[in-house]
Design a binder for these strands. Structure first.
Lengths: 123, 123
DNA sequence: TTGCATAGGGATAAATTTTTCCCTATTGCA
DNA sequence: TGCAATAGGGAAAAATTTATCCCTATGCAA
């Protein structure tokens, strides 16, 4: 059972958005859903480095937080589609801002990230 | 020694920005430094829920990633001041966008976060 | 002399997140 | 029959992050 021993910080807007976006794959899930990749298997193919399990868990949290909605089609084999709620859509410009900054500074970011990880002694 | 067993994902802008901003207190550190709280002790007072230790570690990473710079004054008691580099300053509008969305949706966010945590069974 | 403020790091413990492995079920295809 | 695709969850291990505790050092004030 998931019980939090360290209380959440919910003081300001940054804390609050952190709470719903903090998760290794959440922002990318939102982005790919925004781009029209709706089915879990599609999302998994777009994000092959994540385990199926954690994608399911993060999708569930995004749904509980009202950012995405889920439609289950009663067919076999199962078919599920996610889409952004209006609330989730209101986040799209914010995610764009993040992604654009990352794209614009991509060379520099790659460099500093590599540089920093060299100081992690090997083995 | 910090050795990563799961490789980083550095495919797109979102991955890259995630790598430098992912850390429980990093965004808030950047924000408070941007607001002029420069000394480690001030930052710790602004973020009392974080341990001193982890603030130091995250400040160090922000510095290694070139987002902040550090000046050590050779005085006793020690004095250290952080400030945003130009690279870090270029992130300010992005962090604003995050914080503003959080502020604008603060009531709703508080509600959904509480709602979701109720489904974590007690005990 | 004791205590506080300053800054920071090592070692270890705890908490949290993510991965891995294995299971359910059904239809269609070779 | 055996395997793939579909969606998803339990249990446990592994990885990672964060917290806790204790230590260094100096000058100032009560």
């Amino acid at each position: 059972m998931k019980v939090r021993k360290i209380p959440l910080n919910l003081n300001c807007g940054l804390d609050l958005i952190g709470e719903v976006l903090y998760g290794k794959w959440k922002i990318r899930l939102l982005w790919f859903i925004h781009e029209g990749h709706k089915r879990p298997s599609e999302l998994h193919r777009k994000i092959p480095d994540a385990s199926r399990r954690v994608l399911n868990m993060q999708l569930k949290e995004l749904e509980e937080h009202g950012l995405i909605s889920k439609i289950i089609y009663p067919v076999v084999p199962p078919k599920v589609e996610y889409s952004l709620t209006d609330f989730g859509k209101s986040l799209v410009p914010v995610i764009s801002a993040l992604g654009n900054w990352g794209d614009e500074n991509q060379d520099r970011l790659r460099y500093v990230i590599m540089q920093a990880s060299e100081s992690w002694p090997a083995k």
